[in-house]
Design a protein around this nucleic acid. Structure first.
Length: 593
RNA sequence: GUCCCAGUAGCUCAGCUGGAUAGAGCAACGGACUUCUAAUCCGUAGGUCACAGGUUCGAAUCCUGUCUGGGAUACCA
């Protein structure tokens, strides 16, 4: 915490104003944001739609249905604060040149109540709106008052959404791919939380099946080896040193008492012991990475509780299975998948796929309206059949959204490091945090979109740690805290919000910063809609940049009390935005650097 | 073979599902600390958006091919 915090009035979220909407898969249209930016945008859109109607009545334009136009913020400032493409979309239905349509619209525009200074028609037919320069300052008091809740929007309407991520095999340590999934999943969950969803973070524990069988045999072999017996870790087993380490611990605790116990029984004990230890380590690592789950869901439970049998029965009863060569097949081809898929093997044991179907059935049974999975690219072939299975069970396949995250390729000393659990060669999450730090690692992973391949150069990440963009953002926050420390040292105090004259902020750097701060709610809603935390990382980087520019050009604490007060409100609002964004991205916001 | 992802500045990547003159960060070059933190700022330079067609007022973005890189194509998980 910085020495001062402005607390003022209620921190109430504004009510729903009609504005931006977005669709959530499998869910109805949901009302979204209500920010100053959004109010103006929707005000302009409404005025334009009205103008089109008036023009139709007066005959200056043919009567046509209002096309789905947008009011957007132009990339170039010269093109105004907002711009509409309505006239260009009218070209075809109204059989009019876009610029002529624009003229007819502008003639009918009624902009009362909006801070519009002038309207221009430009380019191929854009209608550009130029606002009074300081219109955006009205956002600042709200930001300061709302504090931690600024940026929260009610786009989700409390819908229950589950984000399942990492779900690594609990047979080893977490590697770089898991780390990326952890950073991504956690940020997406936070983003959805800010966007007004009821979010559950979940980790699926693969504590059953073939892998566990291999795991058990590997543990057993290590145990025997440690006791000087002849034994070999099976080829498809786990060869990592960590497995041997685990069994050394086991040996210390239980000695050689399992030497004479029959194989399947002692393997069960060993698996139970090792899984508990591994899972604890995974929890600990993720916790240190800033990732905390609401639910740790066991695959074994699905088998024991009869969920797998239930899912298979439901598929069978609805005619989506058939038997062939002793195995039970799911008719995946009916759902556009290339080939059918085995759910129960010839030996009677259900496949991993069967358990996964049961797992997703259970998710929907628990009432989630939106189910998000984050999978590595190596699982992408699994997507269509999983969606098919969901549909076969009678659920909406669009309510299941699977984010395919491209794999991480690790470079060390200019060479690719191959990652494999079985050979035990990989860089762990722990090592990563040790080498580059938690904040840098999380920011690095979340900076890039999920579907872009990620080359992670360890040496570079270490060597460049001071140039890492995360420090750039954190530094902006630290600078603001420093200003507030200075203020306190000089015996200054923060002004009450009511007494501040924000209109004193008319420098370009001040207005540009304020403008950017006003975007956060829109930004959150948009990033949440697209499940794209990397855009928020970009946004916060821009906020930091604008703060740095402002900081270098102007002083906050000056002899001019009124100006100082106004600028304090500006930087405190900036700090709110920086901290809220960093919070969503799982990065800390230190006061001093 | 089929399917998925990617191809944008020297490098790493954005580009918000079709908008106006394609943007950042590193790296390069030239400037700015007697003042709230220089982990910063200001400026310069850098492009055939892989390639060829198509769709339309308008394409890096959409559709069809081709090329390159990665991944997936198990009664593994």
């Amino acid at each position: 915490m910085c020495p001062h915090t402005l607390v003022h009035g209620n921190t109430r979220l504004p009510g729903g104003t009609p504005g931006a909407y977005f669709l959530v898969p499998g869910v109805r249209r949901i009302e979204a944001v209500s920010s100053i930016v959004d109010k103006i945008r929707s005000g302009l859109a409404e005025a334009l739609a009205e103008a089109l109607k008036s023009a139709g009545l007066k005959g200056s334009l043919p009567v046509v249905e209002t096309p789905a136009f947008v009011v957007e913020v132009p990339r170039e400032k010269e093109n105004g604060d907002f711009a509409a493409n309505l006239a260009m979309l009218l070209a075809k239905p109204a059989r009019t040149a876009p610029r002529k349509a624009a003229e007819a619209l502008v003639a009918e525009l009624d902009l009362k109540g909006l801070p519009v200074e002038r309207v221009e028609i430009a380019g191929p037919g854009f209608i550009n709106f130029y606002l009074r320069p300081n219109w955006v300052l009205a956002a600042l008091p709200d930001i300061v008052k709302m504090g931690q809740s600024y940026g929260r929007v009610n786009a989700g309407g409390g819908k229950k959404v589950q984000v399942e991520f990492v779900s690594a095999n609990p047979t080893g340590l977490l590697h770089m791919g898991n780390a990326r999934g952890a950073a991504l999943g956690d940020s997406i969950a936070s983003l959805l939380d800010y966007a007004g969803f009821d979010v559950t973070r979940e980790f699926y524990i693969n504590d059953a099946g073939n892998q566990i069988e291999h795991f058990g045999r590997s543990l057993e072999a290590r145990y025997l080896q440690l006791l000087g017996r002849q034994a070999e870790v099976p080829e498809e087993g786990y060869h990592g040193e960590d497995i041997a380490e685990t069994m050394r611990g086991f040996l210390e605790k239980y000695g050689d008492r399992y030497l004479e116990v029959a194989s399947p029984a002692r393997r069960e004990v060993m698996v139970k012991y090792a899984l508990a230890e591994k899972l604890e380590a995974i929890k600990k690592s993720l916790g240190e990475f800033g990732v905390n789950y609401d639910v740790w869901f066991s695959e074994l439970y699905l088998h024991n509780a009869g969920k797998v049998a239930e899912a298979i029965k439901r598929l069978r009863d609805s005619g989506y299975t058939y038997e062939y060569e002793d195995a039970l097949w799911f008719k995946a081809r009916e759902f556009g998948v290339e080939k059918d898929e085995v759910v129960v093997r010839g030996n009677g044991i259900p496949t991993y796929f069967a358990a996964d179907i049961a797992y997703h059935m259970d998710k929907f049974q628990r009432g989630f309206q939106w189910v998000i999975n984050i999978w590595g690219a190596d699982h992408h072939g699994h997507v269509p059949r999983m969606k098919g299975a969901v549909k076969a069970l009678g659920y909406d396949p669009d309510a299941l959204q699977i984010i395919i995250m491209q794999l991480v390729r690790l470079y060390k000393s200019g060479e690719i490091v191959r990652m494999s659990k079985r050979t035990g060669q990989f860089v762990t999450l722990e090592e990563l945090m040790e080498e580059v730090g938690r904040d840098a690692a999380r920011y690095f992973f979340v900076m890039r979109s999920a579907d872009s391949h990620l080359d992670f150069d360890l040496d570079l990440a270490k060597a460049q740690s001071n140039d890492n963009p995360v420090y750039y953002v954190q530094y902006a926050n630290a600078r603001i805290c420093s200003i507030l420390r200075q203020l306190a040292e000089q015996g200054g105090s923060l002004p009450g919000l009511d007494g501040v004259d924000l209109s004193l902020l008319n420098e370009e750097a001040e207005l540009a910063l304020a403008r950017k701060l006003a975007d956060l709610p829109d930004e959150v809603a948009s990033c949440a809609k697209d499940l794209a935390p990397h855009r928020l990382a970009r946004y916060v980087h821009e906020v930091a940049g604008l703060l740095h520019s402002f900081y270098n050009a102007h002083r906050v604490i000056t002899d001019d009390v009124a100006l100082t007060g106004a600028r304090l409100v500006l930087v405190i609002a900036t700090r709110v935005v920086l901290q809220n964004c960093l919070n969503i991205l799982g990065v800390s916001a230190p006061e001093k650097m």
